[in-house]
Amino acid sequence: MSNPVYLALDLPQLRDAQELAGKVKAHIGGIKLGLEFFCAHGAHGIHTMASVGLPIFLDLKLHDIPNTVARAMQAIHVLEPAIVTVHASGGRAMMEDAKAAAGEHTRVVGVTTLTSLDDRDLERTGVSGSTHDQVLRLAELAQAAGLDGIVCSGQEVKSVHDQWHDGFFVVPGLRPAGTASGDQKRVVTPRQARDDGASVLVIGRPISRAENPLAAALEIESTL
């Protein structure tokens, strides 16, 4: 992948998302469209964004019984996403069925621990141990289930890469040096995540909410 940056575009207006993607398309490698975008714009919005000419990462974080997730994966074949997410905590059977139902050219990756969560948050949900340990556990489960890779923070990607050498690793919650973390709790810079083994760097607000998105995308690209 020549440019690992996928721009997260969860803008409320479809035209704004399309225009922004068009402005920076030469300096990113793909577009990440999440649950907010999908609920607002549906399949039509995905097709519209695909016209920009970049790979689509459909970040739906599917999590349900195996049969339901498999049918959902089959339903999005027509959208031809390059990457789709499921929650690794849905279990091995769910992940196996999700991968079996995915399109031939779609990578299925398991979300481990959201970058908005820390050790204290996990403890409150009944998960013992650190976020780092939980990510490694779920990464091992995702690998056993036959997924292509996982989603984790930049703070865990090196350990996961050491454990799963040929995995495909998506790292969100990235912030260029000197920028605010916002609601993200486990952040690193794009350069660090890439050096530690990230395959895809998901970057949203540092570009989409920048005063000059093109300049912001160029600056991030120059560090990679």
Rank of each mutant, 00 (worst) to 15 (best):
M1K: 13
S2G: 11
N3E: 07
V5H: 11
Y6K: 12
Y6V: 13
L7Q: 13
D10L: 13
D10V: 11
L11E: 10
R15S: 15
D16A: 13
A17L: 04
Q18G: 04
Q18F: 03
Q18Y: 02
Q18A: 08
E19Q: 14
E19W: 02
G22K: 03
K23D: 00
K23I: 12
V24F: 14
V24K: 14
H27T: 00
I31E: 07
G34M: 13
F37I: 03
A40T: 14
G42A: 09
G45I: 00
T48I: 00
M49H: 10
M49W: 12
S51E: 15
V52S: 08
V52K: 04
F57H: 12
F57G: 08
D59I: 10
D64S: 11
P66L: 07
T68R: 05
V69T: 15
R71A: 13
R71N: 09
A72Y: 01
Q74T: 08
A75V: 04
I76K: 02
V78A: 06
A82E: 14
V86Y: 06
V86G: 08
V86N: 06
A88N: 10
A93M: 00
A93F: 00
A93Y: 01
M95N: 06
A98Q: 15
A98C: 13
A102F: 05
H105L: 10
T106L: 05
V108K: 01
V109K: 07
V111C: 06
V111T: 01
T112Q: 07
D118Y: 05
D119T: 05
R120A: 15
D121A: 14
L122M: 11
L122A: 03
E123F: 00
T125V: 07
T125I: 04
T125L: 15
G126M: 00
G129D: 03
S130A: 10
S130K: 09
T131C: 14
L136F: 02
L136R: 09
L138F: 11
L138V: 03
L138I: 03
A144W: 04
L147Q: 05
D148Y: 07
V151G: 06
C152L: 07
Q155K: 09
E156D: 14
V157G: 09
V160G: 10
D162F: 05
G167D: 06
G167I: 01
F168P: 09
P172T: 11
A177T: 14
Q184Y: 02
K185I: 09
K185G: 08
K185L: 15
P190W: 08
P190M: 11
R191Q: 13
A193K: 07
R194W: 14
R194V: 08
R194H: 13
D195R: 09
G197R: 08
G197F: 12
V200K: 10
V200T: 12
V202C: 08
I203N: 02
R205H: 07
R205C: 01
R205V: 03
P206Y: 03
I207Y: 13
I207S: 09
R209P: 01
A215H: 00
A215F: 00
A215V: 00
I220Q: 04
S222P: 06
S222F: 01
L224K: 07
